[in-house]
Amino acid sequence: MSAQALTLFWPFCLFIVVLFVIGFYCLLVTFNLIRALIGLELLIKAVTLLLVLVGYVTAHEALVQSLVITLIVMEVVIIAVAAGIALGLHRHNKNLDTRQLRNLKG
């Protein structure tokens, strides 16, 4: 990695960590299922940015772009299914409190 790429790498890394911490905080403190999904989205965004950054500094942009596209497709599927589950939970419990999930019996 060249010195020029290194100057770019660390500021980006710092903000990626910040984004990751914000997403993790959101996941940790909330009881609302939709807000938890938003936290998960923020975590995925941090991972996406890290992938693109590493692709840039190692000059493997094409490979990383194909990986990011795969990641985005998976992200959409996960969010769509999770939103469906949230709707089902709301129909059942009349709220989106994740503490209500503990009452479910298999």
Binding site: L49, V52, G55, Y56, E61, V64, V68
Partner: peptide, 13 residues
Amino acid sequence: MFRLHAPLAAVFE
């Protein structure tokens, strides 16, 4: 992403 030379992934995003 666009500035980091990943325009196709940026459009998807």
